[in-house]
Design a protein around this nucleic acid. Structure first.
Lengths: 115, 115
DNA sequence: TTGACATAACACCAAAAGGTATCATATAAA
DNA sequence: TTTATATGATACCTTTTGGTGTTATGTCAA
């Protein structure tokens, strides 16, 4: 059965926006392995440090990373809780997906299997 | 446990982009209930048909909707399969996003069972 | 066939996004 | 203290995005 209330989208907007850029998603993949300073992140891209900093700011606004100061460095760290609004929004479609879809299901299943 | 292979992001880019705009997410919520022509979708927004058409094109490019012609009308219909690249990408972060993604997965799994 | 309607296909505009370059500031280290 | 380093902040440029308005095309119906 389909829900009738629309989830508050305002909460999710900044997160969706943060995820929309491939560089930012790549940064998340990097930070998944270890925390990094701005310079360390920038070392992985063919882009100025200032440009990387902008991406980090957007990620931070989207709640996907947290930044803590350590001396003159800024340590950027993934914030797993930040994905919650997106997952909530996707969850709104649960019933719909479940009712009709097979390809999506197999994608999810595949993921479940190699955990 | 963390995966080591980075998922192909090219596949997901158009989908993430399509989801990044609040109007487009709202359109998905609308289409979740019923299929609609462009005019019908536009009727739900304070925006010209042309503007709505652009959003529908982006959603289509992202694989999130499918359009079929019926006479002079274009019926826009949700394509749940289109969400798979996004869920795959999110699945890459299992260890981080943790329970919430698990919950989403189990909800979909549950739906699998009573098909 | 003719008229009404649903959409396509532009051209155009303003704002936002992604990027660079440059300079200032704070901190670690010599 | 002096010097090198890590970052912040600002200004500026270019491309993309979200939107409008107008005109053209195709299709249904009388």
């Amino acid at each position: 059965m389909l829900s009738t209330t629309i989830p508050s989208d305002a909460l999710a907007q900044l997160t969706f926006r943060a995820l929309a850029d491939p560089t930012r998603r790549e940064i998340l993949v990097l930070l998944r392995g270890e925390n990094m300073t701005i310079a360390q992140v920038a070392g992985n891209f063919d882009m100025t440090r200032a440009a990387v900093k902008k991406h980090l700011t957007v990620l931070s606004e989207g709640g996907l990373i947290e930044v803590r100061t350590k001396g003159r460095e800024r340590i950027n760290q993934i914030n797993p809780k930040g994905m919650a609004p997106v997952l909530d929004w996707l969850g709104f479609f649960d019933g719909f997906w479940g009712e009709r879809l097979d390809t999506l299901k197999s994608a999810i299943e595949k993921d479940l299997n190699h955990d």
